[in-house]
Write a protein that binds this DNA or RNA. Structure first.
Lengths: 140, 140
DNA sequence: TTATCAATTGATAATGAATCTAAATTACGA
DNA sequence: TCGTAATTTAGATTCATTATCAATTGATAA
C-alpha cells in the first residue's frame, strides 16, 4: 500500500535517499502523487499543482515523473491515451472501465500465470489489464 | 490463426461483408496487415505501401485501421509509443522485448486467470503483457 | 451502361502528448 | 558563504493522431 507523505521532511528524505535533490517542485509532485488512487496523467498533476504553485512548468512534472520512475517511486501505465502514473509500485494489476475510464488497482491475482519460459523469451514481469465496466457504469 | 488474403476478391468480400466499401487502398492495407506478425504501426504500414501506392495518404491508413478495428478485423495494441495493430483477433497475449521492442504473439495461457468478479467490476476481457528479453537480446 | 449519392479519399491544418533547448536559478556539500 | 552541478522554466520542436472539406469513387438502382 502506498501512503501519503505527511511531512515535507519525510518526502525530502525519500528524494535524497534516492539521490535526487529535494526541490520544492519535486516535493509537491511526490506528495500529490503518493496516495493518489486515480492514476493521474502528467497534465492532471500539473493542473492540480499549478493553482498553488503558479511558476510550475509541465516540463518539470514530466521530468520529475521520469525521475521518480527511474528511482522506483512510481510506475507509468500505458493503457491508451496519455501515460498515467501509479504511485503503488508493489506488484498489482489494473481494471479499466471502458465507459468512464476509471482505473482501479487490483490485487495481483493468485492465479497469476507463472512467468513461464516462452521458448527463449525470458519474462521479467507480467502485466494484467482487466477491461470491462465498473460498478457505476454497469448500472447495477 | 490469421492468414494472408491471396486474392483481391477474397479481401474485397471480407470488406463488403463487413459493410465497408472495397476501395483499392483498403484492399492494400487489409492485405498488407493480414498475415503480418510484426504488429506494425500505422506509419510503418503507410511507408510500406506508399512505394507501390504513391497517392496513399496517412490519414487513409489511420481511417482504414480504425474501420477494420470497428469491424473486428484487427486490434490495436497500446504498449507505449505509437499504437500497433494486430491482425490476429483471436484471444492471445503478447511478449514485448524490453531491449529491441519485438512483440511476439503468445498463446493465451491456460493459466489465464478467470475473469473473476472484481467486487462490482464486470470483466469483459483480460489482457496479458509479458515484458522481458527475447532470445536474441537475452544473448543466449 | 449510366446516373445518383453517400461513403471514402487525400492534402493539409489542427490538436495533443511528450521531449528538447538554452538560459537562469537553486540545492547542497565543501 | 561559495561554487558547481543539478534542476527549473518557457517556449520551440517533434511525433502521433484526428479533423476538415473539397474532390473522387464504389455500389446500387434505373
Amino acid at each position: 500500500m502506498n501512503r501519503i507523505f505527511q511531512s515535507e521532511q519525510e518526502a525530502a528524505a525519500v528524494l535524497r535517499d534516492a539521490g535526487l535533490k529535494a526541490t520544492p517542485q519535486r516535493l509537491a509532485i511526490l506528495r500529490a502523487l503518493s496516495g493518489d488512487v486515480t492514476h493521474p496523467t502528467a497534465q492532471e498533476l500539473y493542473e492540480r499543482l499549478a493553482t498553488h504553485f503558479p511558476a510550475l512548468s509541465v516540463a518539470t512534472v514530466y521530468n520529475t515523473l521520469a525521475a521518480l520512475t527511474r528511482v522506483e517511486r512510481c510506475r507509468p501505465l500505458d493503457l491508451g491515451g496519455p501515460a498515467r502514473f501509479d504511485p503503488n509500485v508493489a506488484p498489482h494489476d489494473h481494471a479499466v472501465c471502458e465507459r468512464c475510464g476509471e482505473i482501479r488497482d487490483v490485487k495481483a491475482a493468485e492465479t497469476r500465470p507463472k512467468p513461464r519460459a516462452l521458448t527463449g523469451f525470458s519474462v521479467r514481469r507480467v502485466e494484467h489489464i482487466y477491461r470491462g465496466l465498473c460498478a457505476k457504469c454497469a448500472g447495477t
